[in-house]
Amino acid sequence: MKDEPLVSVVIATYNMGQYLPDAVESVLNQHWKNLEVIVVDDGSEDNTAESISRFNDDARFRYVRTANQGQPKAKNRGLAESKGEFIGFCDADDLWHPDKLKLQMPLFKDSSVGVVYSEVSYIDELGMLIDKPKPYYRYSGKVTNHLVIKNFIPFGTALIRRACMTKDGVFDESLPMGIDWDLWLRYSLNWEFKYNPEKTYAYRLWSGQMSHNYRGRYDNAIKILTKFLMKYPDAIPGSVISRAWADIYVCRAMEIAKSERTFREPFIDLMHGIKHDWLNILAWKAMAKLVLRRI
Results as ranks from 00 to 15, higher is better:
Y195W: 09
G43N: 00
K100C: 01
A288G: 07
R261K: 13
E45A: 10
D168K: 07
F108Y: 02
F86E: 00
D22H: 08
L28Q: 02
L185D: 07
Q69K: 12
G238T: 11
N190L: 02
T166F: 11
P98M: 01
P176C: 02
A244D: 01
G88Y: 03
Y19Q: 05
A158M: 07
K231Y: 05
E45T: 06
M287D: 04
L270F: 12
P135D: 05
Y203S: 14
K33D: 10
I224F: 01
N151H: 11
A244C: 09
H146Q: 14
K150L: 14
V113T: 11
E45S: 13
T262I: 15
A257L: 01
A12N: 11
H272K: 14
M287P: 06
K73H: 13
I52D: 03
P72W: 03
W181F: 11
P233Y: 04
P154S: 02
E81D: 12
D172M: 02
S26C: 11
L225S: 07
A288C: 13
L159H: 00
N145F: 01
D110C: 04
A257R: 08
I256M: 13
R217D: 11
N15V: 00
K75L: 03
I222P: 00
T166A: 15
V113F: 12
I38A: 12
Y137E: 14
L95Q: 12
G208V: 07
R252I: 04
M165N: 06
P72E: 06
I160Y: 06
G114H: 05
E4V: 05
D180F: 05
K199H: 13
R161Q: 08
Y122M: 08
Y136N: 04
A23I: 00
I224G: 04
A92C: 07
G141A: 08
D182S: 06
S82Q: 05
E198K: 09
I224S: 02
H31G: 12
D269Q: 11
Q69Y: 02
I236V: 15
W284I: 06
F61H: 05
L205T: 05
R60N: 05
R60E: 06
K33A: 10
V7K: 08
A49E: 13
W191A: 00
L185E: 02
G238C: 11
I149V: 11
S207I: 10
V37S: 05
T48W: 01
A253W: 08
I38P: 08
M287Y: 08
A253Y: 09
S188H: 01
A74T: 09
K83S: 11
N47E: 13
T48Y: 09
A283F: 03
A67R: 03
